[in-house]
C-alpha cells in the first residue's frame, strides 16, 4: 500500500483493528481447512491420527502417475483456453459498456450480473437443452440446412469450454470495465493528436490502461475453472474429466480422502505459485516487466 493511502486510512493500529474480523474469518474458514487437508494428504490410510506417527508420501507418488498428470495437463488446457476465449469476448463487451453514457452503463452491468441470480446448476442444465442433439443450436442449423445430421455438441470438450466461458463472463467483464472506466478519456484524444491511428491508440493506450483489470479477470476465471468439477460433470463426456472431478470422486464414491487431499494440496500449490509468477512476471504491466523493458 502506498504510504499516502496508509496515512489517509489512519495509523497501523486502526488498520489492524479494522482488518481483524476478515482476518479471523479467513483463518477459521480458509486456512484451517487447508491445513487439515494438507495434514490428511500425508495419512497412510483413512482419516486417522496415524498421520502424525507414520506420515506417508504414498498419495503424492500416486498423484504424479502419468494418468493423473495427463488429467492435470488437460485441466490446465481447458482453463487456459476457456480463460482466453472469455477474455476475447469480455474485452469488447467491457469496452462497449465503459464507453456508453453513464445511465446505460448501469443497465448493461446489470445485464452482465443477471445470470448470477440463478443457480449455476440450473444454468448448466439449460445448456443441455441448447446444445443437445435436438437442442436449439442443432434445430437452427438443420432448419437453415447448414447440416443434415445433428452435430454432437453436448458431452464434448467443446461443450465444456462453452460452459466455462459462459460461467466466467460475469467475472471477467466487471474488472476490465472498471479499469477502462477509470481511464481518462482525453488520453485517447492525446494519442490521436500525436498522430496515432485508432489501432495504435488501442494498442498503446487502451490495452495498457486495461491491464490491471485483465489481470484480475484472468485470475478470477482461471483459478476456479482449473478446479471446477460441476461444468465437466454436466456438460462433458468421459474424456473431458478434469482434476476437480478426480478430487471430488475421492471424497465421494472413491472414499479415498487422503489421496483426494494430496491432489487438492498439489492443485492449491500449483495455483499459488502460478498466480504469483503471473502477477510478478507474466502480465505486461507488472513491475518486473516494466523494469525489464526500461
Amino acid at each position: 500500500m502506498p504510504e499516502h493511502r496508509q496515512a489517509l486510512l489512519g495509523g497501523r493500529a486502526e488498520i489492524s483493528i479494522l482488518t481483524l474480523p476478515p482476518f479471523v474469518w479467513l483463518l477459521v474458514f480458509f486456512l484451517v481447512p487447508v491445513l487439515i487437508l494438507a495434514a490428511l494428504s500425508f495419512s497412510p490410510a483413512g482419516m486417522t491420527v496415524e498421520v502424525f506417527r507414520t506420515p506417508s508420501l504414498e498419495h503424492y507418488r500416486q498423484s504424479l502417475d502419468p494418468f493423473y498428470l495427463g488429467i492435470l495437463l488437460r485441466s490446465i488446457g481447458y482453463a487456459a483456453s476457456a480463460t482466453l476465449i472469455t477474455l476475447l469476448i469480455a474485452f469488447p463487451a467491457a469496452y462497449f459498456i465503459a464507453s456508453s453514457p453513464p445511465r446505460r452503463q448501469v443497465w448493461l452491468l446489470f445485464l452482465v450480473f443477471l445470470p448470477l441470480w440463478t443457480n449455476l446448476l440450473v444454468r448448466l442444465y439449460s445448456f443441455k437443452i441448447i446444445l443437445g442433439d435436438n437442442g436449439l443450436v442443432n434445430q437452427l442449423l438443420q432448419a437453415l440446412s447448414i447440416v443434415g445430421e445433428p452435430l454432437s455438441l453436448i458431452y464434448t470438450p467443446l461443450a465444456v469450454v462453452v460452459g466455462f466461458v459462459y460461467w466466467n463472463l460475469p467475472y471477467m467483464i466487471p474488472p476490465i470495465y472498471a479499469a477502462l472506466e477509470r481511464m481518462n478519456p482525453s488520453l485517447l484524444e492525446a494519442s490521436m493528436d500525436l498522430g496515432a491511428s485508432r489501432a495504435q491508440t488501442f494498442r498503446h493506450v487502451i490495452v495498457p490502461a486495461s491491464l490491471p483489470g485483465v489481470t484480475t479477470g484472468v485470475i478470477l476465471c482461471f483459478v476456479p475453472t482449473l478446479g471446477s468439477f460441476i461444468v465437466p460433470d454436466i456438460l462433458g463426456g468421459p474424456e473431458s474429466m478434469m482434476v476437480g472431478n478426480v478430487i471430488a470422486a475421492q471424497f465421494g464414491q472413491g472414499l479415498n480422502w487422503p489421496f483426494g487431499s494430496a491432489l487438492a494440496t498439489l492443485l492449491t500449490l500449483l495455483v499459488t505459485v502460478g498466480v504469483t509468477l503471473y502477477i510478478r512476471y507474466g502480465e505486461p504491466g507488472s513491475t518486473a516487466a516494466r523494469e525489464a523493458r526500461a
Binding site: 482525453s186 488520453l187 484524444e189 494519442s191 500525436l194 498522430g195 496515432a196 493506450v205 495498457p208
Partner: peptide
C-alpha cells in the same frame, strides 16, 4: 497540429521518455 491539453493528459503508464517519444514512435 498538436495540443497541450488543459489537464496535460500524459499517459500514466509510460515513463517521461515514452510519453515524449509517443508521436515519433507511432
Amino acid at each position: 497540429v498538436n495540443t497541450v491539453f488543459q489537464n496535460y493528459a500524459l499517459f500514466p503508464h509510460y515513463r517521461v521518455y515514452d510519453n515524449v517519444a509517443y508521436g515519433l514512435k507511432v
